[in-house]
Design a protein around this nucleic acid. Structure first.
Ligand SMILES: [Mn+2]
Ligand SMILES: [Mn+2]
Ligand SMILES: [Zn+2]
Ligand SMILES: [Zn+2]
Lengths: 142, 142
DNA sequence: TTATAATTTTATAACAATTACAATTTTATT
DNA sequence: AATAAAATTGTAATTGTTATAAAATTATAA
């Protein structure tokens, strides 16, 4: 809805990815559904539009996207990986009740600690776990 | 080597865990091998001492330990979980070359960001990824 | 001690996410 | 149109983990 096909194509090409139909659809889904979906979420959701879609293609595409820096893969203490179209450094909060994953800005400078002097740090994950306000309010009613 | 059986028993009892042989062995392993091992690491290593050991028991024990706060489970962008006998808040660095996991002290106050006001935060993971100094030196030789 | 119950451990099968692989389809090039 | 390259698919394999029920061990009571 937000992006024209042309824009999506340019986005992929800019990231050195040939814009196939499936790749465009997955990119579009990720841009319009910023919920940190799993591969299965994406697969299930696109099945209406692309009835021949295979789960392998979803994995292939997401692996390619991760390779080219289009998505960041999230490990949030669960067995399924999640995919984030926002690759800039930011924190994640996972609610253990509703399983929603919230973004937050990291409120301190993430400098390399002196214990890691001489290490190359390419990637940083900051993950919080607990119960979100929504779920806390829900529980209050009982 | 470091701990007497008596000390290990007390440690488990203090955490509300009945000290069975397997539990003591796994605890001892975790205390003496602070390498953030996987369930398989632990299983393989104890097989000499306990030839009848089953992997299910290792998982059962680690689940129990996690439940009782004796270990912290780590999700480090890999499919296998790792287990840390140090449950105090600290950061982890995973080297993508040698797969070693290093500890580091978190060099800032991990206060709850204002975006998460009203959220209950029970757990925090801070994970860095990259190449450790060891592996960087190794590579330099070529 | 013996009997009985509770707990722990084991072996095996089931499960679920991901990956491997080769065949098919689609797209690009000549 | 013919050919080559790339993308997609279906299927099977792999892997870490979990479920389940039987067997072994340990605790409790008679
Ligand atoms: Mn995010
Ligand atoms: Mn640690
Ligand atoms: Zn919630
Ligand atoms: Zn290394």
């Amino acid at each position: 809805m937000e992006n024209t096909i042309k824009q999506l194509k340019e986005y992929l090409i800019k990231h050195d990815i040939k814009p196939s139909t499936i790749r465009l659809k997955i990119l579009e889904y990720l841009l319009n559904n910023r919920i940190h979906p799993t591969a299965d979420d994406i697969y299930k959701n696109l099945l209406d539009q692309i009835p021949t879609l295979s789960k392998t293609s979803v994995y292939n595409t997401l692996d390619l996207f991760a390779d080219k820096g289009v998505v960041k893969v999230l490990s949030l203490n669960e067995k399924e990986a999640r995919y984030d179209i926002n690759t800039r450094l930011h924190g994640h909060f996972k609610c253990r009740v509703c399983s929603r994953v919230y973004d937050f800005a990291i409120p301190y400078d993430v400098s390399i600690p002196h214990e890691l002097k001489g290490f190359d740090v390419n990637d940083i994950d900051i993950n919080f776990y607990g119960v979100c306000q929504n779920c806390k309010n829900q529980g209050r009613k009982s």
